[in-house]
Simulated scan of single mutants.
Amino acid sequence: MTTTAQTVRGYHEARFRGDVAAAAAHLAEPFSFRSPFIRSTDPVGHLAGLPEFVKIVTDVDLISELYGEAEATLVYDVHTATPAGVQRTAEHFRLDDSGKITTIMLIFDAAPWQPMAQLMT
C-alpha cells in the first residue's frame, strides 16, 4: 500500500501545485479520466487545463485517504475563488502493476459549476 499511497498523494500534491510534469509522471498508458464535465483517455489532455484550474484554487483540505493494494480514494474540499466556493470532492484511483495510475474517477456536485461552464463555451 505504500506505493499506492506515494503515487496517489504524489499526483494529488503535484496537481494542486500546478506541476503538470510531476502529476503526469504518476499516470500510466493507457489512462482514462472521468468527471461530471470531462472525459479523457490521454494523460496530456487530462492535465491540459490544470494551470488555469489551479489559478482559481485558494486551498485544499484533505478529509480522508483510503488506500488498497491497487486502488485509492481521496475525499477533499477544494476552496475556489469562484461563485462555487468550496467544492466537496471524491476521487477514486486505480493503479497498474507498475504502480502508476490507470484510471481516475472524480465525483462532485456539478450544479454550482453549471453557470460558469455555460459562460466558457
Rank of each mutant, 00 (worst) to 15 (best):
H79D: 07
A81T: 07
M116S: 14
T58H: 03
P43Y: 01
A22N: 04
A24E: 15
E52V: 14
I38E: 11
P36C: 10
K100D: 02
P51Y: 09
R15E: 15
L95M: 07
Y76M: 01
Y11S: 04
G99K: 08
H92K: 13
E13R: 15
S40A: 11
E13Q: 15
T41W: 08
F108G: 06
P115R: 08
D19V: 09
R39V: 14
Q6D: 15
D61L: 04
E65N: 10
V78P: 03
E13H: 14
M1R: 12
H26K: 15
Y67M: 07
A48Y: 05
I63C: 04
R9K: 14
A110D: 11
D42L: 06
G45T: 06
A72D: 07
S98K: 08
A48R: 07
R15S: 15
A22L: 07
L66C: 11
P43Q: 00
M1L: 12
T41A: 14
A28R: 01
D97W: 09
V20D: 00
D97H: 13
S32C: 10
T7N: 09
I101M: 05
T3V: 12
V57F: 02
A24F: 07
L50K: 01
A72I: 08
E65H: 09
V44R: 12
R94F: 12
A72M: 11
E13L: 14
A81G: 07
E91H: 06
D96F: 04
E65Y: 10
F53M: 13
E71K: 14
A25M: 03
H46K: 09
L66V: 14
A70W: 07
I38K: 12
T3A: 12
D19F: 07
S35Y: 03
F31R: 00
W113E: 11
P115K: 08
A24W: 03
A21W: 00
V44P: 05
V86F: 05
D77T: 00
